[in-house]
Simulated scan of single mutants.
Amino acid sequence: MRWLVLFLSVFSSISLRAPVAIAAASIARTIVVDLKGGGDFKSIQQAIDSIPDNINKWTKIHVAAGVYREKVNVRSTKSYIVLEGDGAQTTSIEWGDYDGDSSGHNTETSATFTSYASNFVAKRITFKNTYNGFAKLTPAVAAWIFGDKSAFYYCSFTGFQDTLADTLGRHYFKGCYIEGVTDFVFGYGQSIYERCKISTVKSLQKPGFVTAQGRNNATMPGTIVLRVQVGAPSQGLKQLTWEGMETLLEESGCTGPGSDLSGRVKWEKQLSDDELKKFIDISYIDGEGWLEAQPPLD
């Protein structure tokens, strides 16, 4: 049974600011991963495993350009890691597991990249599930995020079905690219997506759905889509019922041909300006300033 319940989130094109000023942390150690042998390791997983458990000092793992064909798992004991690529166009982690393959994988274990650790940062790297979903529609996750206080900057998440599992915790995505065909952003996380691009790949077998939300009851929170440029009408925001429950989508300030509200279901909610205030402040996910306490971008 699939448990797709969309996280409470903001898909936003506005710039957000942290509510408090906290000194950024410094990097205590840098590890270099290079497929060509010019670093400390050739494997990302080996680099992660080399970090002592339960330390509270930041370690940077710089991953040189290349396609790293491996499954990567950041265990809960491996907090305070910055995983940095040379660029999302040149550095990628790729694997092709899917739900129900010959190894008995389910949706979670199909993930190319999994992170259980809190205080995790990734930047300028691609997470890709290479499974060809056009052959068989089935979950095949690119990244599965469990840890709290996790941030992703200028990363790409590419897959077919269930690309990005934003599962648990407070997460921040900035300048990221997320691609899939159906239900490809899902989870229970409390997250903000700032200036991200979400792209639906056309499929002949199935219409594209960015997310599937199955709320347990009508009082559970839903999704905020705030000031987003929406594509062509055929790619616009729509709502359907899923497993007998109304999905909840709250739109505000969206533009583009796909933002026309005339075709929406009549129970869609429109938030007032006062109701939106808490969602357009970074304190929605970061009241204590954990984002600014992370190492600065360079």
Rank of each mutant, 00 (worst) to 15 (best):
V185S: 12
A212D: 11
V5H: 14
T109Q: 10
D183I: 06
L35M: 01
T200S: 15
R2A: 11
S115A: 12
T130G: 06
G66H: 03
I178N: 03
K128E: 15
A143N: 04
I198Q: 04
S259V: 01
N56L: 09
G180F: 09
G263V: 04
N56F: 11
S12M: 03
G244C: 06
I125A: 03
M1C: 05
S203M: 00
D166Q: 12
T30W: 07
K136E: 12
G236H: 03
I285K: 01
T158Y: 12
L204M: 12
S262A: 14
L297S: 12
D166T: 14
P257V: 00
S118I: 03
L83I: 08
D49P: 06
P139G: 12
C176K: 02
E108S: 10
S79A: 11
S203P: 05
N129A: 01
S150G: 13
I27V: 15
L249Q: 14
Y177L: 02
A212K: 13
F134T: 13
L240M: 10
V121K: 02
Y131M: 00
T158K: 12
L6R: 10
T126W: 04
W58Q: 00
P257N: 00
K42F: 03
L164Y: 11
N129M: 03
G180M: 05
E292I: 07
P139E: 05
D49V: 09
E251D: 11
V33W: 06
Q229F: 08
